[in-house]
């Protein structure tokens, strides 16, 4: 546990020791603010709940992109700079290394997502929206971020450069995003499987609308677990390469 927190703490500090963390967070806030103002708020009168729903809809996109960008460096940068040796030779299990990295990425995402709270608060102050709706939406955003951070961590563990890591993670995320399209043209039982894998369409939309769906919580937890498991397996394999 100590090793996990040490690794997570160092990686989290590394985001702020360089411009990387600030730039990604600022970019996410800027884009999110613009989308909120231009599309969620709109130019005509709207129900507060619709505005909040649209806010979470647009936020899901920026969160996924930010998660890929923030996690692509986790292992790939250490590998390219030769500092992965420090973890390879440390008396820490591969599992604790992976969880430490994941927690760093997740903490950074939580900070970034948390900074968007002023937008729903503005709607809350000026309109009528339930706290439950906002909490549900943020839970969805964090679960979605968790899944993408796990995918990004896995991508980063495979690649030699962070750009390749980002491309690998981006590809997997796009495939999972488009799963609903494939489900539309598939027959059961394949249709059900593919539909279940849809990262956004089936699982995120309930959170946007203020509903906490247990199946979706389990889905995001499963994706997180599966990709962290693959990352640990991949790291174990490197000692044989």
């Amino acid at each position: 546990m100590k090793g996990i927190l040490l690794i997570a703490g160092r990686d989290l500090r590394a985001y702020f020791d360089t411009a990387w963390g600030y730039v990604v967070t600022a970019a996410l806030l800027l884009v999110n603010g613009l989308l909120f103002n231009a599309f969620a708020m709109g130019s005509t009168a709207r129900y507060s709940s619709d505005v909040i729903e649209d806010f979470f809809y647009y936020s899901s996109g920026t969160v996924m992109i930010a998660a890929i960008i923030l996690t692509m460096r986790l292992f790939a940068e250490e590998r390219s700079q030769g500092t992965l040796v420090l973890l390879d030779t440390a008396p820490a299990s591969d599992l604790s290394i992976v969880i430490g990295k994941y927690l760093a990425g997740m903490s950074m995402m939580a900070i970034t997502v948390g900074l968007t709270i002023y937008m729903p608060l503005l709607v809350m102050v000026n309109g009528k929206v339930s706290v439950g709706h906002i909490c549900s939406g943020y839970l969805g955003l964090l679960l979605l971020a968790s899944a993408v951070v796990a995918i990004g961590t896995w991508g980063s563990s495979l690649a030699k450069t962070q750009y390749v890591a980002g491309a690998v993670a981006g590809f997997v995320v796009v495939v999972l995003l488009l799963a609903w399209l494939l489900a539309k043209v598939s027959d059961p039982p394949f249709k059900d499987v593919v539909s279940y894998l849809s990262l956004f369409d089936r699982h995120f939309q309930p959170f946007m609308r203020g509903r906490i769906n247990t199946e979706s919580v389990l889905f995001y937890a499963s994706i997180t677990f599966a990709f962290l498991f693959l990352t640990v397996r991949g790291l174990e394999g490197r000692r044989w390469k």
Partner: peptide
């Protein structure tokens, strides 16, 4: 691994850290 120390040809250093904070981090890690 607690009983071994390793210096590869290119030293594995987090260059954004000071030497003291880096050694503190590595010491805690080990």
């Amino acid at each position: 691994r607690k009983k071994t120390g390793f210096l590869p040809e290119v030293p594995p250093l987090h260059k954004e850290m000071t030497a003291r904070t880096f050694l503190h981090y590595v010491g805690r890690l080990r």
